[in-house]
Design a protein around this nucleic acid. Structure first.
Lengths: 365, 365
DNA sequence: GGTACCGATGTTTGCGTAAACATCTCGGCG
DNA sequence: CGCCGAGATGTTTACGCAAACATCGGTACC
């Protein structure tokens, strides 16, 4: 670390303050005027051109003499000019920002999707604004949507089951485009989601292929569309294979709930294979089975969903269904931006495939 | 769910569509003008008042006749008026938005801090904009800071070690306030952080109190300030207690790295107590110890840091140091907004205390 | 030699809002 | 009875930027 600290603010660093009282011209009116940064007009004055030329340079317009351009660039640098995004947005009618609405950042899926969205948006030169909804009540959600119109966003990506909005009459602000994750509203909006059904089918078939009679399911909360889809697909896969469908067990995504349900499952000698709807619940399940002396995978096979980074370090390492959250995020942004560009909404559902990751928590019957 | 789906866009829902095919004027997509939402002037016209009066109502100003106010409110509702945040920001010189810069959302700490920030910001009526930096290179970080000036933020919260910025000369845009997490730059910025040293001391003392001779440390990457602080505090605590300081083992925060290091530690019969710098690495460590037949806590005691939700479901449930991320986020926002209000930067460090959570992974020597 | 054209630049205008200032209407009071 | 003040409302202006349009000197071409 040779260099000393250099992070400085403009006021301290930039302008040599050549003029004395002349700055007063800018300081026009009365009292302490908010000292904003340099504007295009300031740059234009310094460079000896019109502000329009500054604009052209700022936006990389062709048709500016090379010499002039350099004079402008120099002036910009000297004044540490930064385009005012509010003025830009006002003029252009676009904010270059995408909003994301979600209940919580405590589930892996939401966070990883958000990360994917943020990355994709950044690459497209868009910013991402977070619109958290504290409690998943309709009032809260409704509030978030109402505020939407005042927010500086061109599009919104909703990471949650939209049926929570059902009974409120919402009017979306004009020209805010919508993309939804974790929902079945493909006939009304653009929906991007993981192929829940496909992943579930792979999981169930994997277990059946190992010779298990049937597969139990540790489901997520009924409020989650993803949980519902996985449960449905589990049932379907079993029925298609002509197997008995054990009673559905429900958790709430948390490891703790997986543990509680796991204690029950451990008591059932006929429970030899379990498909947990996410890795956290699988973790709790593993603990319960361990405590009750049921070995995994010798006595019971366990498979999860998500493939969180830690799942390879569970005891034993967890077989699970990998979700490509980055891809989901990327597709969300792509679709949102396409809608913004066209100024028209789209509908339809895009599914991102999953991949089965076989580790050590599943074995032959 | 009695009601059918009602989420509609304004265009579809609001206006009774008096005109016939003439609506085509609005539908003129690329060729026509951008059909923005209703403006204050539109509301004013409908309500039969001046736009200034609309502004007064919109901002909850007193001094508007009750009757007039209601006429205006009715007009707003009829036109589905939403204040234009760009125009507001331009006029007021404030965006009512806080930016958050961070490398990744794949570590618990960053995510939970972000969540705390988002929640606190929402309560204060501020939006949160995410400014992800793909790779933690100085160029990338520098780029993020440069773009900052063009972004619509009043303040920035940086969740990362600022020494990564050292050798680049950064000029922050004027009037963008800064708060830093995970750094020691308290003499230059406002810093909010977990009391790493205190938490570490508690962890080490807990193990020593159980009768262990000394405590090994599975540290995080040297690029992390938090990891550095925890390692330093670990060493100090041991020295203060007059114990031998075992060689430092380094991971990269991941469970996988904890597993790798764990395999080494398992070979050392003198390793009876380990302080892992986060819960994920502790998880990998537990797996390695289990594989090598070393029982926890009978043969080896393990303690983590963070208290992620899953840690209570590890095998065995993990003793760990709880961090109050929500509080860190809250304090960040509070400080950032105070700086924005005053229009002046502050400096100094605020530490948020930790809490030792004793579960089953630690036991007497 | 005139004119059509082109590239480089300047001027005007308006995006939607809200501060500052102007006006207008009362009721009370000397 | 006219003036004052206070509350209610209207008018002007500027925030910073960028389309749209205007200008201006030169160049190619008939």
């Amino acid at each position: 670390m040779a260099e000393p600290w250099r992070l400085t603010t403009t006021q301290e660093a930039a302008v040599p303050d050549t003029s004395g009282p002349e700055r007063g011209s800018t300081t026009a009116s009365q009292g302490g005027r908010r000292p904003r940064g340099a504007s295009m007009a300031d740059v234009a004055r310094v460079a000896g051109v019109s502000s329009q030329t500054v604009s052209r340079v700022s936006n990389g317009f062709s048709g500016v003499n090379e010499e002039t351009r350099e004079r402008v660039l120099a002036a910009m640098k000297e004044l540490d000019y930064r385009p005012n995004s509010a003025a830009r947005a006002l003029k252009r009618g676009k904010f270059h920002t995408i909003g994301v609405i979600t209940f919580t950042l405590s589930t892996t899926g939401n966070v990883r999707t958000l990360e994917g969205i943020a990355t994709a948006a950044a690459q497209a030169g868009y910013a991402v604004t977070l619109l958290p909804v504290a409690v998943p009540t309709q009032d809260e959600v409704h509030g978030a949507f109402s505020r939407l119109g005042e927010l500086a966003v061109d599009a919104v990506i909703v990471i949650m089951e939209v049926h929570l909005l059902d009974s409120s009459r919402l009017t979306l602000p004009p020209h805010v485009q919508v993309v939804v994750v974790d929902s079945d509203a493909g006939d009304r909006f653009t929906v991007v989601d993981t192929d829940q059904a496909g992943g579930t089918r792979d999981a169930v078939r994997h277990l059946l292929g190992l010779g298990h009679e049937t597969v139990w399911h540790l489901a997520g909360p009924s409020s989650s569309f993803a949980a519902q889809r996985r449960a449905d697909a589990w049932r379907t896969a079993l029925e298609e294979a002509g197997r008995a469908v054990p009673p559905l067990m429900r958790g709430d995504w948390s490891a703790e709930s997986g543990y509680r349900v796991g204690l029950e499952l451990a008591e059932r000698p006929d429970c030899k294979a379990v498909f947990a709807a996410n890795d956290q619940m699988a973790l709790g399940l593993l603990r319960a089975l361990h405590e009750r002396g049921r070995r995994v995978p010798e006595d019971v096979s366990v498979i999860g969903f998500d493939d969180i980074p830690e799942s390879g370090s569970f005891l034993p390492p967890l077989t699970t269904v990998h979700q490509d959250f980055a891809e989901v995020g990327r597709l969300c942004v792509e679709s949102a931006l396409r809608q913004v560009r066209r100024g028209a909404a789209e509908r339809g559902t895009t599914l991102v495939p999953t991949r089965l990751v076989v580790r050590e928590s599943t074995g032959p019957a």
